Amino acid sequence: MDGFLSPADLTALGVTLRLAMISTGLMLVLFTPLAWGLARMRSSSKAVFEAIVALPLVLPPTVLGFYLLIALGPRGVVGGALESLGFGHLAFSFSGLVIGSMIYSLPFVMQPLQNAFQALDPRLMEAAATLRASPLDRFFTIAVPLASRGFLSAAVLSFAHTMGEFGVVIMIGGSIPGETRVASIAIFNHVETMDYAAAHGLAGVLLVISFLLLLGVFAVNRRFARITGPGA
């Protein structure tokens, strides 16, 4: 690997993988209750919330990154509040990248989870309620296990999507070596300097990782389908 990727590329790849792991873990924890609530919502305002969740799919990444930069910067709502409390702002920091990645990958977590929760048989939850199981017990003992395929899809899609981010991360993180320079930015820098061999090497690594992630989730889903049947 040392002869295939330069030390700087290895560092950028490490930042990318760390960003993807942290962002994905936080999204699964924080967005699962939101997906559950949205799946059970029957209000007419549900379409508004679904549009907000799906907005990063159509919004140009640089636009999202620009507004995040404003919000997380020293004069922004979030960054300014942190500055007044004695903390540093989050622009051009790894923590800012995590926040931006979570917002940018929001639909890739929410939609698989929401679909999985909506596919649950409500009679199972009703049966557990008649046995005096609390709402929290019903969620963790019935809803979460039955939605495991949705969790797998959400984790893999958000992880792979985070690895390929460019527009958002360069707007709010820049290209600080070892801190905010991710693999996609490193590839862009190689192309700018006409170093196509280095760009090929790093791009190939991301291509292989993304393919293996998707191959794994499709294989697991096919195995689940064979075990539980097509209607499960």
Rank of each mutant, 00 (worst) to 15 (best):
D2K: 13
G3H: 13
G3V: 11
L13M: 07
V15T: 06
L17K: 01
R18N: 10
A20R: 07
S23K: 09
T24I: 12
L26I: 15
L30A: 15
A35G: 11
W36L: 15
L38H: 05
A39F: 04
R42Q: 15
R42P: 04
K46R: 15
F49A: 07
I52Q: 03
A54S: 07
T62M: 03
I70R: 13
G79V: 07
G80V: 05
S84V: 10
H89L: 03
F94E: 04
G96W: 00
G96M: 05
L97M: 08
V98Y: 03
S101H: 03
M102A: 10
P107G: 05
P107Y: 05
V109G: 04
M110I: 15
Q114G: 09
Q114K: 15
N115C: 08
A116R: 10
D121Q: 11
L124R: 13
E126A: 15
L131T: 11
P135A: 10
F139E: 12
T141V: 12
I142Y: 08
I142A: 11
A147D: 06
R149Y: 10
R149P: 09
F151W: 12
S153G: 12
L157H: 03
H161S: 11
G164T: 02
F166V: 06
G167E: 01
I170Y: 02
I170E: 06
I172Y: 00
I172L: 01
G173Y: 00
G173Q: 01
I176Q: 00
P177D: 00
E179W: 00
E179K: 04
I185R: 02
F188G: 08
H190W: 12
H190Q: 14
A199E: 04
G201V: 09
A203K: 04
L206G: 03
V208Q: 03
I209M: 04
S210Y: 02
S210R: 05
F211Q: 01
L212G: 06
G216W: 11
G216Y: 12
A219P: 08
P230G: 15
G231E: 15
